[in-house]
Amino acid sequence: MTAIETPERDTDYRVPALQRGLTILGLFNARERVLAMTDMAERLDVSTSALYRIVQTLVDMGYLQKVGRNAFELGPQVIRDGFAYLASRDIVEVAMPQLNALRDRTSLSCHLSIREHTDSLYLYRAFAPQRLTVNIPIGTRLPCHGTALGRVLLTALDDAGLRLLYQHLRLDDYPPPAPRTLPELQALIARDRERGWVLHRSDYSTAIATGIRDHNGQVVAAINLSGPDAVMDGPEAQATFLQALFQCAAAISAQLGYSAAG
Rank of each mutant, 00 (worst) to 15 (best):
L188Q: 08
L188D: 09
I189E: 00
A190N: 13
A190K: 07
A190Y: 05
D192N: 01
D192T: 00
D192H: 03
R193P: 04
E194I: 10
R195H: 09
G196H: 06
G196F: 04
G196I: 05
G196K: 03
W197N: 07
W197S: 09
W197P: 02
W197G: 03
V198A: 05
V198L: 03
V198D: 00
H200N: 13
H200E: 11
H200Q: 10
R201F: 05
R201G: 08
R201N: 11
R201C: 09
R201P: 05
S202F: 06
S202L: 12
S202C: 12
D203K: 11
Y204C: 13
Y204I: 11
Y204R: 15
S205F: 13
S205Y: 14
T206V: 10
T206P: 08
T206A: 11
A207H: 01
I208S: 01
I208E: 01
I208P: 01
I208V: 06
A209Q: 01
T210K: 05
T210N: 05
T210C: 15
T210V: 05
T210L: 03
G211F: 02
G211C: 07
G211R: 00
I212T: 07
I212N: 00
I212A: 04
R213S: 06
R213I: 07
R213W: 04
R213Y: 01
D214T: 07
H215K: 14
H215N: 15
N216T: 14
N216G: 13
G217P: 01
G217H: 08
G217Q: 12
G217C: 08
Q218W: 11
Q218N: 12
Q218I: 13
V219T: 12
V219H: 02
V219G: 04
V219I: 15
V219Y: 01
